[in-house]
Design a protein around this nucleic acid. Structure first.
Lengths: 234, 234
DNA sequence: AGGCAGCCTATACCCAAGTCTAGGGTGCCT
DNA sequence: AGGCACCCTAGACTTGGGTATAGGCTGCCT
């Protein structure tokens, strides 16, 4: 039926060693219009090229070879953050708690009520759509940041920390006018019209870059300061 | 032993209907220098005045009257966000998953290994310390925000959205010079030296206030704009 | 050797932001 | 009626940020 949309329609990934389970779940998902693909082992998932579509991964825990829990960790190590739902007949509390702490979105037990399963999958897909949207923004902005020269990045650090041009100039040991140049170029590259916009762009930047920003700007210390520069005092 | 420190030392709260369990856990915690108080029912916790110290709540699930799960929800409703650890002999996977989804930090089963219990409590306490630190900052900044007049709050919204004074003036239907006045007063009250600092202050503001900011500033739209004002173009 | 990117500097000018002073209006509380 | 908080406005001025133009330096690639 619905097959023409290989684009961005959600895709559930089922991993279970029991073919019967896979088929019935796929059928169930198809009945509500959710496409799915299935694997019979964790290894198959790792070696397969997963589609870059919003979706979720439904994992059995006990399988020959790698367990579902193992796969969860391996996927995390590969930085694959597609939401994971566990679905198992052989689990215990400790296992479910570990899985949840490791970021699983849900942990269902077989036999599962159809509606409970569909709800979990829907929630997971919605989560993934939101996650991917945020990721897309982060990557776009990350590319902007990468286009900056070293100097421009230093200036950026100072700017987001609230330093004035003259402070930046002092901090970098260059003239204020040069700071203006770098700053101006940086703002253009970051596609920011004002400091506020710059902040918004920086906000949705990968965590590692944000760290670099804060560390670098530690020199330019902001925060408080009662009678700083004849401004507020008086 | 350690009793003189009623100040900010951590305090675990144990809730279990079994006096023997309570006593042995308290003893265990005392052995590693963690103070604790215990309750025999969920009702007692709700009616008691909980100490405002960093800590965690250790909850049995099955108790006469309100269950641990019930108590978790009631505490959440009362906006008490002290980390919760479940410790139960009568749980199932569904229950543990629901508890974890509802924000529980851990879900242990009796009999519990001493070390596992202590680890969970330590982690929870550390979490709470961090949470409370963040909360303290949020409350301080929230107080700053509350001290603003309605006009100043409107101006703040525009400022964080990157609007220029003249845009703010147009948006509010007042003169640019009045905007400067409000803006200046607002910056002083918010204890911010620059737009960047203002942003940092706003960042650590309660979520509800941040919402108000964004909604209000939706009028002043930021983002992109190729040839906006003769600046970049040319 | 020439071209290019990145870095630094300078002068000059414009505009946006912030301050100071000095007013006028409203509504609320005592 | 006076005091106060909040809101609005104006003119004159200072400072900070941004642009344009114009130049010199290094190092890398072709």
């Amino acid at each position: 039926m619905a097959n023409s949309e290989t684009a961005d329609s959600p895709m559930a990934i089922l991993v279970d060693d029991d073919a019967e389970v896979r088929d019935s779940l796929q059928e169930l998902l198809r009945s509500v219009g959710i496409e799915s693909m299935s694997f019979s082992s964790a290894q198959d998932v790792l070696s397969a090229k997963l589609p870059s579509r919003p979706g979720c991964i439904v994992l059995d825990v006990r399988m020959p070879g790698l367990s579902g829990i193992d796969l969860q960790q391996l996927l995390a190590a590969k930085d694959i953050q597609t939401p994971i739902i566990f679905l198992t007949g052989h689990g215990d509390i400790a296992m479910s708690v570990e899985a949840m702490k490791a970021g699983a979105l849900d942990f269902l037990t077989k036999p599962v009520r159809d509606q409970a399963f569909l709800d979990a999958v829907s929630t997971a897909i919605a989560t993934d759509i939101a996650r991917r949207a945020a990721l897309a923004v982060a990557q776009k902005n990350s590319a902007l940041y990468e286009s900056l020269t070293p100097r421009e990045r230093e200036v950026l650090s100072f700017v987001v920390s609230g330093a004035m041009n003259k402070e930046i100039a002092f901090g970098l040991g260059i003239s204020e006018i040069t700071v203006k140049l770098h700053r101006s170029n940086m703002m253009k590259k970051m596609n920011a019209r004002s400091v506020s916009h710059l902040f918004n762009v920086c906000q949705s930047l990968p965590a590692d870059i944000q760290c670099r920003l804060r560390i670098a700007s530690a020199a330019g210390k902001p925060i408080a300061r009662p009678g700083a520069r004849g401004h507020f005092a008086n």
